[in-house]
């Protein structure tokens, strides 16, 4: 059983986002980068499967050198080796191309990743990878169990969930509650330092989209407070002032 877990290195969820260079670059000053929270779920489930079935886990990141701390942390949590494709991950198709190229060389049984990265929120890479490899893709996956080469999956749908079955190999976009996030222990951190991390250059140069510039949302106006003993006024204001109801 070979599992590929694709991870992103993204600003911590509490980050206040700002931009530099005339709004063309993320201001990384003072920003803590973390493993994408959804990717963390994918990795945690992979580690559980490894503990149960003896799988090997390769972590893959499409990113620049500054994403290596995130990759090392994934190794500390339980991945066996890692590959970094040395490129800025700005375009979903481009990132998918890199993942597909690595997957074609190594034929994984499962390719897991988060349902979306929390920077661009596209939620598309797993599907494009599936298409490129000609195998099914499923997202967002809440539960994953294996029975031989059949995956039993629960996926969230609007207003509920559905139970699915499909044969491996599969590409899955994961989310809670597929597994509990794992925290690396000291032994994991020590061994992670010597686990192999291979850096490869990207294949293809198809960036089908680029970001011309960024913008921050306009701040909301001041909050209008309504005394609790006149709570009914709120409904009037929503009706006559905000005109939303």
């Amino acid at each position: 059983m070979k599992i590929l877990v694709c991870v992103t290195s993204v600003p911590d969820t509490t980050t206040k986002i700002t931009f530099t260079d005339n709004n063309t670059k993320l201001n990384k000053a003072g920003v803590t980068f973390i493993t994408g929270p959804y990717d963390d779920y994918a990795l945690a489930r992979a580690v559980e499967l490894k503990e149960k079935t003896g799988a090997t886990i390769t972590v893959l990141n499409v990113g620049e050198a500054d994403s290596e701390p995130v990759i090392r942390k994934c190794l500390a949590i339980g991945a066996d080796d890692a590959i970094r494709v040395n490129a800025e991950p700005t375009d979903a198709y481009f990132v998918a191309e890199q993942i597909a190229a690595i997957a074609k060389e190594n034929s994984y049984d499962l390719i897991l990743m988060g349902r979306e990265s929390i920077d661009y929120n596209g939620g598309q890479v797993h599907g494009i990878v599936g298409e490129m490899l000609g195998i099914p893709s499923i997202s967002p996956v809440m539960l994953l169990d294996l029975d031989g080469d059949t995956a039993k999956i629960t996926r969230e749908i609007e207003g509920g969930k559905e139970s699915l079955e499909a044969k491996l190999p599969l590409v899955l976009g994961c989310q809670e509650p597929i597994a509990e996030w794992k925290i690396p222990n000291m032994r994991g951190i020590m061994t992670a330092r010597t686990k192999p991390l291979k850096v490869v250059e990207p294949t293809g140069t198809d960036k089908l989209s680029t970001v011309a510039s960024y913008e921050l949302p306009a701040p909301r106006g001041a909050v209008k407070m309504i005394p609790a003993d006149a709570a009914e006024t709120l409904i009037q204001l929503l009706h006559t002032e905000a005109k939303v109801i």
């Binding site: 920077d119 929120n121 989209s209 970001v211």
Partner: peptide, 14 residues
């Protein structure tokens, strides 16, 4: 983008 914390102007070249 950034889960609603910012916006991007995407130049679609394809």
């Amino acid at each position: 983008i950034y889960t609603g914390k910012a916006f991007a102007f995407n130049d679609l070249k394809a």
